[in-house]
Computed example of a mutant assay.
Amino acid sequence: MGPEERLGELGLTLPAVRRSAGAYVPFRWAGSLLFLSGRGPARVDGSFVTGKVGLDVSVAEARLHARDAGLQLLAAAKAALGDLGRIGAVVKLTGMVNAVESFTEHPAVIDGCSQLLVDVLGGAGRHARTSFGVASLPHAMTVEVEAVVWADHPRG
């Protein structure tokens, strides 16, 4: 079973790839490495999910936000690859949590994205990871994740 079938089994669909909010692109190739720009959680209408984790957003809610950001990453990867089955491995995931200064559960939040990648991509979804807290994120998002993926370049 391929990644897109696994998404269906999980009851998930990929969102449209969000336009970049500045002078950058959603993804960039460097040889066989696909660099995916940072993505955050968004509502169906395209607005960002906002808040400060540890103040007005719980760890459980933020974990779901990280999963949503992971869907955004997968959507960008599909746009770059045409088929998520071309992903050989998620090499590195970096997750940032918009949190109060005393917050320390960053790994639990970013696990929402990490678990999604494993659930959808199987062993190829296992990755090295860094997670940390920040004082703010663009658009006041609760989380932002970026990834480096090793894949078959669609142009060969």
Results as ranks from 00 to 15, higher is better:
A30R: 09
L117K: 04
G133E: 13
E9A: 12
L73N: 01
G122C: 12
A77F: 00
V145S: 01
E146G: 06
Y24A: 05
E5T: 13
A140E: 15
V59Q: 08
G95Y: 01
R129E: 13
G85A: 12
A42M: 11
D83C: 04
L10D: 12
A30F: 04
W150I: 11
P3E: 05
F35R: 11
L81R: 03
M141Y: 11
G112N: 09
R18G: 02
V118I: 14
G8Q: 14
H127G: 07
A140I: 05
P138T: 09
R28F: 00
G11V: 12
R126V: 15
F103Y: 14
S20W: 09
D68Q: 15
M96Q: 14
G40W: 02
P107L: 11
G51C: 09
P15R: 05
L73W: 01
A79S: 10
G38F: 03
S102K: 09
A42G: 08
Y24F: 14
I110H: 04
S58G: 10
A80K: 00
V118H: 05
L84I: 02
C113E: 04
L81N: 03
E101S: 14
D56F: 06
L10W: 13
Y24H: 12
L81W: 00
A42Q: 12
V59I: 15
A128L: 15
F132S: 14
E9F: 11
H106C: 10
A80Q: 00
E144C: 13
G40V: 03
R39S: 05
V109C: 08
D119K: 11
E146V: 02
G8I: 13
A75V: 00
